[in-house]
Structure formats: C-alpha cells, structure tokens
Simulated assay, not measured.
Amino acid sequence: MGRSKTDTGAGSATATTMAGGPEAMRAWQAVFSESTRFISDRLQQDLETQKAMLACKTPAELLQVQAEFYKTAMDQYAKEAAHLYELMSKATESSLKQAGTAFSRGYDDVPL
C-alpha cells in the first residue's frame, strides 16, 4: 500500500518519534528546531549577501563579496553538520533507550 500524492510522511515520522517516549520526542524536536533555525539564519544571510552583491560597483568588489560569502557559508555548514550529528546521536540514543525499556521482558514472564 503506497502513500498518496499528498502524504509527506510527516505522520509516520511523528508516530515513530512519539513511540520512543517523551524524552526521545524532546530530543528529536531539538533536532528539528535546530535545523529550522539554521535554515532561517542562512536564508537571511543569503538575502543580505544578495543586497551586497547588487551594491557592488566593480568586479573586484563583487569577487570580494562572493569570496566572503562562500567562506562563511562553508564554515557555517560544516559547524552545523557537526552540531546536528551530535544532536541526532543523542536523540537516537534516547530513542533506543526508551524503546528498549518499553518492549523489554523479564525472564519470569515467559510461559514454559
């Protein structure tokens, strides 16, 4: 059974996240929030760079603005990737810990 054309899979992701319990949900929410914050900040910086590029009077000024933009963007993306990796590692660890306790069984409850 496939997804409908309007189904984004968000329901599945939310259900999976909630299955890990409240601690795991908070951890994954931090990942989603950080991703959204970063994208918003980068878009703002992209717009500011575009304004600076349009204000350039010479090709040398344009090259300087572009060089600064690329250097800054690459540094920020590298730093953000490391930060998101850390957040996702913690969220995954929390999810696995919660899933293990939710479905673990004791040896004395297995029928013989």
Rank of each mutant, 00 (worst) to 15 (best):
L96K: 13
G9I: 10
S89Y: 05
E68F: 05
A67M: 14
R37H: 05
A55D: 12
M88K: 09
R105A: 09
T72N: 08
K5N: 14
M74N: 15
G20L: 07
E48P: 00
F32D: 14
T101Q: 15
L54Y: 02
T14Q: 11
I39R: 11
G9Q: 06
L112P: 02
M25Y: 07
A102N: 09
I39D: 06
G21P: 06
L43A: 13
S104T: 04
T101C: 05
L47G: 15
Y107A: 04
K57H: 12
T8E: 14
M74T: 08
S40W: 00
G21F: 11
P111M: 14
T36V: 02
F103V: 12
S104K: 08
R3H: 11
E34W: 00
M25R: 15
A78N: 09
G2Q: 14
G106W: 00
L112M: 06
A99S: 10
Q98T: 07
Y77D: 09
S33C: 01
E93F: 07
M18L: 13
T14D: 11
V110W: 10
T36R: 09
Q64N: 11
T72K: 15
L47E: 15
A10P: 03
S4D: 15
G21S: 04
A24S: 15
D46S: 01
P59L: 14
M25H: 09
S40T: 12
D75W: 07
Y85F: 04
G9S: 03
Q50W: 03
Q76T: 08
A15R: 14
T49F: 04
E48R: 10
L84I: 14
T16A: 08
E34I: 01
M53F: 14
A78P: 00
G2F: 04
S33N: 08
R42T: 07
S33F: 02
V31K: 03
L84A: 04
H83N: 11
A19I: 03
L96C: 09
E34D: 15
A10C: 05
Y85T: 10
A30V: 04
M53Y: 15
D46Q: 01
E80A: 04
L43Y: 14
Q76S: 12
A30E: 13
K90H: 11
L63G: 09
Y107T: 08
E48A: 09
L87M: 01
D75S: 08
Q44K: 14
G21K: 09
K79A: 10
T17H: 02
A13E: 15
K79R: 07
A19Q: 12
R105S: 06
V31Y: 11
M88V: 04
K79M: 12
C56L: 00
D46R: 00
A73R: 13
A99H: 03
Y70H: 09
M88L: 07
V65T: 05
D75A: 08
E48S: 13
R37W: 02
A73H: 08
R26T: 13
A102R: 09
V110M: 13
S95R: 01
Y77L: 06
S89I: 05
L84W: 00
F103W: 06
D41I: 02
T8W: 10
A60C: 06
A24V: 04
Q45K: 02
M25I: 06
G20S: 13
G2R: 11
E48I: 00
T101V: 07
Q98I: 04
D109E: 13
F69P: 08
Q76R: 13
A27Y: 09
S95E: 10
F38M: 01
T17M: 11
A55L: 10
S95K: 00
S89M: 05
A60S: 12
L87Y: 03
K51S: 04
T58E: 01
C56S: 12
